Every structure is written in structure tokens, then in C-alpha cells.
Simulated assay, not measured.
Amino acid sequence: MTHFSPIPPTAAPAAASARPAVEFRSVCKRYGSFTAVGGVSFAIETGTLVTLLGPSGCGKTTTLRMIAGLEQASSGSILIGGEDVTGRSAAERDVSMVFQSYALFPHMSILDNVAYGLVVGGMPKRQAAEAARAKLELVGLAGLEKRLPSELSGGQQQRVAVARAIVLEPRVLLFDEPLSNLDAKMRRRVREDIRQLQQSLKLTVVYVTHDQEEALAVSDRIIVMSGGEIAQDGSPRDLYERPASRFIADFIGDANIVPAVLDGRDGEIGRFRVGTAALALPHRGVSGGIVDLAVRPNAIRLSGGTSSEGVPGCIRYAAYLGDHMEYEVAVTLGGKEMMLFAAIPDVEAPFAVGDAVTVGFAPQGVTAIPA
């Protein structure tokens, strides 16, 4: 695996300004009667990687394009480095974008691809080539300067696109679904490289993806969008462990949404029942009675046979995935049959389809969902 070269201490920028690198103030984008982004407000601190995450059509790419100046806001204000750039063109915003397609010039060497923006901006060719060569070394492509894009792998082309963006030394670097053209193993490697580079150079990055695992892996902060609005904004751990809604719990990683009864509270801890299984965990302000819990697949515990201390179930599907088993377990909760998805590390004595089991729950990986 190729990693980015280590960054010398002098390469890091000055201490982050108190002003946000990017700020949206009640920004709205309309296309006729359709509102793609509605009244969105957020601030992105200098030197952080913030991901805009959400399903297709949620408004995340439109938001990114408004930062870049490729779309104009219908209302509200967009600030970059404390300056209002709402009415400015893309060329006047001091941002660079790494596109989903990479958009490399096929007839140019990778050195010329990286130097192109500097040359167009008026820098002498020799100076631009030196700067481009330095950035190619930074992203682990030293020695490949004369190759054409077609002679590189997908991961190497992605690095060229990154080098071409950072050689301009933008205030903000934008990534639009940057890993969608790579296979699963290469996506993991390149996302590690992007994160390492961002942290080493203290770059301000706004990153768009629909892949929850990718967002959890690279981000300082995640802004989840739904229907053109912000559904939740927080750290990866906050979103995964403390989802603010059923949508977030279901969208960020796999989760089983199960009905439970809140029997009482002891300070911040609630006493919950899932069928006959008892759980003590933070109640997060939910009221008494029937509530929803988000249960991660690895929080489910399975034992053979039936027991009064858990929920009786039946294995309906079993799959061996090397280091764990995946099961679908039919249970009855709240008077309705439902399927629970479980990830169990025991692969030595797996359950078979049709086996009767008792379902239990580990407190870690279970959270109450606020109404």
C-alpha cells in the first residue's frame, strides 16, 4: 500500500483562524417550485474534515456545489474565510474541487495535469512544474510524472486529482463522491490516504458521500442531510451512538429498530424491557410507555433454546463471513413478528436455519431513540 509522504513541519499552515472556513447562513436553493436545499445553516472550522452525508436527493451535492460557486444560492449567505462570497463566481472563491470523475486531461502527462491550473493562472511553466512535482511526491507519485492518466490505476488517478487541487493552495478543498469509481479494497486504502493528507496538512475539507462507513472513517464531523435539511450534525461517534431520530439510527450503520417499554428511571438511566429481556441504559429524555430502541447487530446475543430471560426467536437466515456469522432472527415484539439482523463473532458453532434461539442484548450498542 502506498501512503502519502510525511509532511515537514514547515508545510503546515499557521494556526487556524477564529473565523469558520465555511459558513452557511439560512441558505436555500430552489429550482422553480422545488426546494433542493431549504434554509440550511452550519459552520466548518479551519483544518477539519466535514462530511455531508445522506441518501440520493437529500441536497448534499447541491450544498457542495454552492460552496464551490457552481450553483448560486437562491437566498441566504455563504461565507468563506469570513468573506461573503454568495454572489461571487467559482473562480473568485479560493476553493478547489476533486470531482467524482477526476476530470484529468487524457492527452497530458500527470505532471502537466497537476501544473495546469498554475500555468493558466499565469505562473511560469518551470515554476509550475516544480510545484506540481512537489505535490506529486507528497501524494506518493514521485517518478510517475511523465505517465498519462490511462497508464495509472484508479487509486493513482485519484491521487493525481488531489495533487492538482492542493497545488493551488486553496482555502477549502471539496470532494464530490471521490471514491465511487474504486473497488471496495481500493476505496478503503484511498480514504486512508485522503485522511492522512488532510490531517498532515491541516487542510479544510468538505467531503460528500452517500457511504456511511466512508463518512465514519474519514470525518471529524458529519452533517447528515435529508429532504434538503440537516437531520443531525455531530461527530461520527455522536451520530452512531446517540442518533437524534429514527432516520439517523437507521441510516448511520445497520440498526434494528425495536419496540421497548420504559418501566422507570434512575437519574439518567432508564429501565427498559424488550419482550422479557431487561436493559438499563441512558433514557435520553424519552417518555414512559412504548419507545423505540436502536440495536446494533453486534449488540445482539444469541443462545440455543428458549429462556425466560430473553426473547424467543427462530433463525431464518445464516451466512458465514469469515470472522463472524450473520443471522436474521424472527421474533415477536409488541404483538408483531419482525426480523432482527445479528452479527455474531462465534463461527465455530454456528446456528442453522430453523434453530430455536433466545435473543439477548448487550447494553453497548443499544440506544433509546428520542421521539
Rank of each mutant, 00 (worst) to 15 (best):
P282V: 08
E268C: 12
G270Q: 06
A294R: 02
G288W: 02
L281I: 15
A278L: 12
S287M: 03
R301A: 01
I300R: 06
G270C: 02
R284I: 08
I269Q: 14
R273I: 13
D266M: 04
D292M: 14
P297R: 05
A278Y: 12
G264F: 09
I269T: 13
V286N: 03
E268F: 15
S303G: 14
A278S: 12
I269C: 11
A299Q: 10
V295S: 05
R296I: 02
D263S: 04
H283Y: 10
G288T: 13
S287P: 06
A278C: 04
I300K: 04
L279C: 04
G264M: 10
N298H: 15
T276A: 14
D292K: 14
R296F: 02
G275A: 02
I290L: 15
A294N: 08
R273T: 11
V274F: 07
R301I: 03
G289H: 05
E268Q: 12
L302R: 00
I290F: 14
R296E: 07
G264S: 10
L281S: 05
F272A: 02
A278W: 07
V295R: 09
G270S: 00
P282E: 14
R284N: 07
D266G: 00
G288I: 13
I290Y: 14
I300H: 02
G264Y: 09
V291Y: 03
D263E: 15
G289W: 06
L281N: 04
A280C: 14
A280W: 05
T276I: 06
A277M: 14
G270V: 07
R284H: 02
G267R: 11
G275N: 09
R265L: 08
F272I: 08
T276P: 02
A280Y: 01
R271D: 00
G288V: 13
D266R: 12
R271E: 11
R284Y: 13
D263M: 05
G288P: 06
V286F: 01
A294F: 04
H283E: 06
P282S: 15
G275L: 05
S303C: 10
R296Y: 13
R301K: 10
T276V: 12
V295K: 08
G267S: 13
R296P: 12
V274Q: 01
D263Q: 11
L302A: 01
R265K: 13
L302E: 01
V286Q: 05
A278E: 10
R271Y: 03
A278D: 08
A280N: 13
L302G: 06
P297Y: 00
V291N: 01
S287C: 03
R273G: 10
S303R: 01
A277N: 11
G264H: 00
R301T: 03
A280I: 01
D292R: 15
L281Y: 14
